[in-house]
Computed example of a mutant assay.
Amino acid sequence: MYLFTSEVVSPGHPDKCADIIADSIVDEILKQDPNGRVAAEVFIAGKHVVIGGEVNAKIDFTHDDYRHIVKGALSEIGYNDNPHFTRAQCLHPQDLQVDVFLNQQSPDINQGVDQEGGEIGAGDQGIMFGFASCETKNFMPAAITYARALCDHVYAYAKSHPNELGVDIKTQVSVDYGTKSNFEECKPQSIHTIVVSAPCVESMSIERVRDLIGNLIDSAGLPKELYDKSKTIIYINPTGRYVNH
């Protein structure tokens, strides 16, 4: 075996919630100032949301404005006061405490962005790059592609069935290439292991959850030449109870 593993989290995972809130802040600022620039970080812990960083824009959002953006983003994700999960089990936007620590961008940093000749520099922000792979139609490696497909499929079901599943979902896929040579030549041989963790309402048994998610795995559109249910190792909520999230 030669295994490669990738993990994906749904929009309901705290890390993704933070990313989506940050993106929503950028969107709202750009709506009012197309030339605005935002370097905002978002931290979520329990019922607390902390927004910090720098803004260079011709607007002045209030604390209530930012709180409204946060609540709107979380509601769109699926945290919309779902009555099937208690306030102790799930995030409820009405209970949030939002702290905002956004400062005006330093002119010293800004001069690294606005450059003579109209070019825009990166300032103090890093630039990331990657490469394409021929393993899938979307030119991404197989493991991350199929982990994302599974996560999106289970998340879509959770959003449309809030009486069964919560939206803080994590998926993991291990692809077996057989040999290092196959890995280097982008030739996956099979999906070796699948892990899916999704919160459920307290009334659902672990057996029911595993049966439900097992069916979702089968209907996620994984390639038949790689996914064989009789051979793939599948773990669904492997630690057992997953209600509080």
Rank of each mutant, 00 (worst) to 15 (best):
S205P: 05
E54V: 05
P199L: 11
D95G: 07
I109K: 01
R67Y: 05
Q115E: 13
T193I: 10
R67A: 07
T145R: 10
Y146V: 07
Y146L: 05
A158K: 01
D108R: 00
K16E: 06
D176M: 01
K187H: 12
G121C: 08
N110S: 14
I109W: 00
C200K: 15
G214I: 03
L165P: 00
G126V: 08
I44G: 05
G178E: 06
I44L: 12
C90D: 13
E28P: 15
G117A: 10
K229C: 13
G130M: 04
P11H: 11
T145A: 09
Q111G: 09
V175N: 01
V201I: 12
Y177D: 06
H92G: 05
K229H: 14
P223K: 03
V100T: 02
D81Y: 03
R37E: 11
I25R: 01
V195E: 06
A18V: 07
K170L: 04
G46Q: 11
D218M: 15
P11Y: 09
L216G: 09
C186H: 15
P238S: 05
T86K: 01
F4H: 12
V154A: 06
A149M: 15
K170F: 04
H245S: 15
M140C: 15
E164L: 07
D108M: 08
N182T: 02
Q89P: 05
D64N: 10
R37A: 09
S24N: 11
K229E: 13
F183S: 08
A18N: 09
G72Y: 09
D108A: 06
A57H: 06
D124T: 14
E225L: 13
